[in-house]
Design a protein around this nucleic acid. Structure first.
Lengths: 244, 244
DNA sequence: CAGTGGTCTAGACCACTCA
DNA sequence: GAGTGGTCTAGACCACTGA
């Protein structure tokens, strides 16, 4: 009954049960089989239906609650969240960011080089002096509008060659893609050179974003400094209370 | 042995065991009783030492891993994280933010009024048209330097009176304090009026930050639009990968 | 007061690390 | 191969919600 409606676990999957169940539930929510504000079956029923223990059901639900897809009310039940805000403040590359805003990302390369780290880069990337890095400089466009000037420095060891970076840097990084980034944002006035490259009026306001990206293994894999047009780009961030 | 070193659970606490244990461990880490990179006792040993089940130990550790105080390596052990970055991207009010940067926050009130929501505010705060709100406008200083112009709108129901807000708005909000905020940042040029209020040159770059704050019960309790000096303030944000 | 989520236990097996 | 974290179970009691 429950399983028919929500979905089956994959029969011969090696993945942990709680992740399989999590996936089935997430899919059901995405496909609107479980509508907003709808109550999920009680944990005990889910456990019985999927032939797992209630602890496993709870572990599956925990992840979805963390991701704000579900809310729990003690004594009342577990409910599908009303999706007012979604996917804010999750990492995306410029490419993905623009696609999600319904725009077509494009890059114009200014340079693509290799060299040794500067002291500033070594500090930001956690590299020893003299380590080899690739540097990429480009103008980013959304549709035909210029959006940003971007300078990226990547440790050579995380990229097979500098020519792998065609359009998306994050795509080229593959498994070394950042799972966590730290960004620092400031408002600045564009320099005449920057304004000219972006094709905008001198003395316009821009957003300087300095980004350090960390891969799953904790190593720093990206140090990027970008200059976004203030009139064309805004940045959304979600913050929450500190560690418990 | 273990308990002597790390600390005791409170004897007669009503709090869940896993939270008590979490607290003891966090304290031990903060006090450097457990130093960076040091291995914690195995989960089974902790369970025995504190007379709780291993499941409870794991639940306590889970929270600390989420908060990045610990890292786990299967087969190897659980280790105290090397605290390279801490407390980024957690909510803080202007007051707290400045204090943490070692500066003295101060406000100069421009106005403090009550009224009915505008359509824009109603939308942002999730209020019905006509609902009463308080509005606060002030110039924010760090030491003697002007930092920002701030316009805040607060639903009247979450504040006892508008005169409760002395220095810190978040302090006045008490239990209605936001636990989650969504911010939108843009680079703008200051208007002549804004520049004059802040005592800076006309046509300087500034950071426009629009913030919506959500209390623990999910209600929107704050809608603020601020203008920060680009030359005096930067914003740090931490992002991570989306929901699993 | 019946039903729900919140916490907790004792024990088991597997996957991985490291000497 | 001993020791560690990762997953999972069956069952229990408590705290809270809502008809």
């Amino acid at each position: 009954m429950i399983v028919e409606r929500i979905g089956r676990l994959e029969a011969e999957s090696a993945a942990p049960l709680y992740l399989q169940l999590q996936r089935v539930l997430r899919d059901a929510i995405e496909r609107r089989v479980l509508g907003p504000d709808e109550a999920l079956p009680p944990e005990r029923d889910l456990a019985e239906a999927y032939k797992v223990s209630r602890v496993t059901v709870r572990k599956a639900l925990d992840g979805l609650v963390d991701a704000r897809l579900l809310t729990r009310r003690q004594g009342a039940g577990t409910f599908v969240a009303t999706r007012v805000e979604k996917n804010f403040a999750t990492i995306s590359s410029f490419t993905e960011d623009m696609l999600s805003r319904g725009r077509a990302p494009r890059s114009e390369w200014l340079s693509r080089s290799e060299g040794s780290v500067t002291p500033e880069e070594a500090m930001a990337l956690g590299l020893s002096p003299g380590s080899p890095v690739y540097r990429f400089t480009r103008i980013r466009y959304a549709d035909t509008q210029s959006m940003a000037l971007e300078h990226a420095t990547i440790p050579a060891r995380v990229l097979e060659s500098r020519d792998m970076v065609a359009d998306s840097l994050y795509k080229a990084l593959g498994d070394n893609r950042p799972v966590r980034v730290l960004q620092r944002l400031r408002a600045v006035l564009f320099t005449p050179e920057q304004a000219e490259l972006l094709g905008i009026a001198a003395a316009s306001a821009g957003l300087e974003i300095e980004r350090r990206g960390f891969a799953a293994d904790g190593r720093t894999v990206e140090f990027t400094r970008s200059y976004y047009r203030g009139d064309a780009y805004d940045f959304v961030a979600e913050l929450s209370v500190g560690p418990v």
